Amino acid sequence: MSNSGSSRFSSEQVEYAHAVRAFCNREAGTREQRDALTDNGRECHSPELHQKFADAGLLAVSIPEEYGGSGGGLVEQCLMFEEIFRGLAPLHGAGTSHTVAGIYKKFANEEQKKDALAAISSGTVMSISISEPEAGSDAANISCKAEKVDQGYRITGQKTWCSDAQFAGRILLVARTSRGEKRHDGLTMLEVPAGSEGLDINPISTMGGREVNDLFFTDVLVPDSAVVGEAGGAWKQVMAGLNGERLVCAAQALGSAQRTFDDLLDYVKERKQFGQPIGTFQALRHRIADIAIEIEAARALTYDTVLLVEKGTAPADELVRRTSMAKVKMTEVAKKVALEGVQMMGGYGYATEYGMESHLRHSIAPTIYAGTNEVQREIISSTFGLR
């Protein structure tokens, strides 16, 4: 959260953002600390740090008080993720956990809420699994099957690109329980313990580290009580959470963009060529000014949209359009800042020692997940009647 944007928020929200920033600076503020927490950058999530974050009362900010949280909303959630990503704190599992929490808050029964939301509040990581090899952007093509059997469901099939499953205590699975007239009919959300017999979790190696997984289900049995929400109604439940998911993605990208900019600014002020700091050369000064403008413009779009969604008074099409716009703009600004950083730092931008190449690697995936930016553009154009 920048000083220029703090007027949008209450004093309590500002204090919370500062508390998250202080935690990240204290626990993961140095390269040495982060390397120790992430196996030298190979992991995106530290279970140890996640538990500390929960114990400090910072994790469950948007979970209702009766389930162990602080009772905040989407604003606090976005402030949290902006600061986590700005601080480079390896708390990737916090994102998937809050996505799952949002679904439980809206659709779970009271017993499920008491159990799952309290677990998330106390530090249990949860993951959500939707994508399959033939069902990415085309999520209605899900084929992983959950067959009804006596007193439960038998799950068979494959899922992919499942974030943080290797750390999760539970996985919220979207599986096919029936076929209907429409392609997205017959999908159901089921809670699956990560240690279930017949479930294999295989990490996928990526340029961003070990953050996603293939999941293989071989006759995995779950009880009837594992259904979250309405059997056959998962599509509606997934769609209901998309506005918040896009804005959390935008907030994460904002934090990343700001950290990349901060690191770049420090570098151009210190690095000297021809007897003076390279940041004094007009070519670089103007590029620095341009990316600063881009960040602030995208920040305004993101948080103005967050506040609009919180109010809940705008037409549905406007909310969908604005959240998709924020997701596209902020993730592409983050990637642009990182590309500019590598270019302005020259060879040092390419070297692992300085971290700019890491900023670039981690700026790419957000343009793909939470709905690719190409899909977001389709959504935006459709709200203008272009179908």
Rank of each mutant, 00 (worst) to 15 (best):
E82M: 13
G87E: 08
A89P: 04
F85D: 09
I155E: 00
T177A: 06
S143V: 13
S127T: 10
L74T: 04
G93R: 00
E181V: 10
K182P: 12
R176E: 01
I171P: 00
T156K: 09
K114H: 12
T99P: 13
A168N: 09
Y67K: 05
S97Q: 02
L172Q: 01
Q77P: 11
K182G: 12
R179Y: 15
G73V: 07
L173V: 09
D138S: 15
L172H: 07
E147S: 08
K105W: 12
D164W: 06
T156L: 09
N109C: 12
I171C: 05
N141E: 10
Y67M: 11
S131R: 05
T99R: 14
Q151I: 11
R154T: 11
G180T: 04
E65C: 12
A118E: 11
G69Q: 07
A168I: 05
S131P: 13
D150P: 11
R183Q: 12
F85Q: 09
S143P: 12
I103L: 13
V149M: 09
G152F: 10
V100K: 00
E65F: 09
A140L: 14
G180C: 01
E83W: 10
L91A: 02
E132R: 10
A165E: 00
G123Y: 06
R154S: 15
M126S: 12
S122Q: 14
K159C: 00
S137Q: 15
A175K: 08
P133C: 08
G169Y: 03
L59C: 11
R154A: 14
C144A: 06
P133N: 00
A116H: 09
E110A: 12
E111S: 15
S121I: 02
F81E: 02
Y104T: 02
P133H: 01
G93Y: 01
C162P: 07
V149T: 04
L91K: 01
E110F: 10
G93M: 00
T156Y: 03
V61E: 06
C78L: 07
G68L: 02
R183D: 13
T99N: 15
E134H: 14
I120G: 03
G123H: 02
D115L: 12
K113F: 08
M80F: 04
S127D: 10
K182S: 15
N109E: 10
Q166S: 14
R176T: 01
G87S: 07
L91W: 04
Q112I: 04
M126K: 13
L59H: 10
G73H: 10
I155K: 00
K159R: 05
T156S: 13
Q151V: 11
S122G: 13
Y104M: 08
I63D: 01
E134M: 13
F107L: 07
N141M: 13
N141W: 11
S137Y: 15
P90Y: 02
V75S: 09
S163W: 04
L91H: 08
E65Q: 13
E134L: 15
I128K: 03
I128G: 01
T96H: 09
T177K: 00
A135F: 00
D164V: 11
A165R: 01
F85E: 11
K105M: 15
A175N: 06
K105S: 14
G180Q: 00
E66C: 14
I84M: 05
W161T: 00
S163H: 08
L173P: 06
I130H: 06
L117S: 02
A135H: 03
I103Q: 02
V75I: 13
S122F: 12
P90C: 05
L172K: 04
D150S: 15
G72Y: 06
I142Y: 02
L74K: 00
